[in-house]
Structure formats: structure tokens, C-alpha cells
């Protein structure tokens, strides 16, 4: 709807100063665009890094737990002939 509105009334869209200057080949506009792109990418990078670290820490913790337990799960008593009496 916003896009339709902007296409139908381009002069209204020019009300945004950054959008207006972004249309030209101005170095200030390029600087604003670059800054906007940088700031847009940063949250994804930060959240991605945090999630990535959590996944890494989880895997490392699981691997450590496995190595401390001896690597193999405990055998259930029922599966041992000596223990199940048969």
C-alpha cells in the first residue's frame, strides 16, 4: 500500500529529505545511503553472532558432557543377560 501510494503520489514521497537527496548523484546522499545500509546490516550481524555463539557453546557443552560420560550411553539393565536373570 505504501508503494502504491508512493507511485501514485511521487511528490508526497519526496517529503522525506533523505529520499529526495538520494535520487541525485550527491556524495552526501551516497554517504547517507552507505550509513543506512551499514546500520541496517548491523542488527542482523549482532543477532547472528550471538545466536552463532549460543549454538557453538551448546555443541561444545554437549561434546564435553559426552566425553565426561565416557562417550557411550549406559546399558539398560534389561538388555544384560546377567541382570535380567535369563
Amino acid at each position: 500500500m505504501v508503494l502504491c501510494g508512493a507511485l501514485m503520489a511521487p511528490a508526497t514521497a519526496h517529503a522525506c529529505a533523505v529520499c529526495l537527496t538520494g535520487a541525485g548523484n550527491d556524495s552526501v546522499a551516497d554517504a547517507f545511503n552507505l550509513s543506512v545500509l551499514f546500520l541496517m546490516a548491523t542488527p542482523y550481524t549482532v543477532v547472528g553472532a550471538i545466536v552463532g555463539w549460543l549454538v557453538y557453546a551448546n555443541r561444545r557443552s554437549a561434546a564435553k558432557a559426552k566425553s565426561e560420560d565416557g562417550g557411550e550411553p549406559l546399558a539398560s539393565l534389561a538388555s544384560l543377560q546377567k541382570e535380567n536373570g535369563r
Binding site: 556524495s27 551516497d30 554517504a31 550509513s35 543506512v36 551499514f38 546500520l39 549482532v46 550471538i50 549460543l54
Partner: peptide, 27 residues
């Protein structure tokens, strides 16, 4: 601490964004 560092990263990203505007915009 992980969350706090995320907020800190955003704070510095804002400052770097401002620097980019003035640095790239200046001939």
C-alpha cells in the same frame, strides 16, 4: 553479558554510522 555486548555493539554501530555520513560525504 552476551546481551549487553550486543547492545554495546549497536551503540558503536550508531557512532560509526555517523562517522560514515561525514567521512564519505566530505570530498
Amino acid at each position: 553479558t552476551l546481551m549487553f555486548l550486543g547492545a554495546e555493539a549497536m551503540f558503536f554501530a550508531g557512532l560509526i554510522g555517523a562517522f560514515i555520513v561525514f567521512r564519505v560525504g566530505s570530498a
